[in-house]
Amino acid sequence: MTDKKQRIDIHAYLAEMEDIPGTRVFTAQRARKGYWLNQFAMSLMKEENRNRFLADEKAYLDEWDLTDAAKKAVLARDYNAMIDEGGNIYFLSKLFSTDKKSFQFAAGSMTGMTQEEYAEMMLKGGRSPEGQRSIKEGR
């Protein structure tokens, strides 16, 4: 007989994922919620779709089974709101690439800082993890 396999408690595991300040981990729950938003973003990997989207964003979005909140978030390019709707940054990267924007632009836009302030913070060594590790433990 081998030693009993040590199992991770999935409930504790998932609860911890929600304990990180300013972070929405792409769990199954979010992946399910954001299924169509992410699939819409994927569709922008084709040039003809990018062109159709840019020509009439609202009409293109209406072709997808998206919530009103998700559509609104896309039209406003509100990346925090898109992530709240289950969007994932790597899927959403197809959207900001279609806009000819960078990962730094998109990431910075979610912090409440201006692009310049965000770029400056990165040049100075980035955001410290101090106080940003755990909501419950306040560390």
Partner: peptide
Amino acid sequence: MSHQLQGPRAGLINKDF
């Protein structure tokens, strides 16, 4: 290595880690 691309915590870097 360390990085975060999403949410208000984006830009996190941890050199010691």
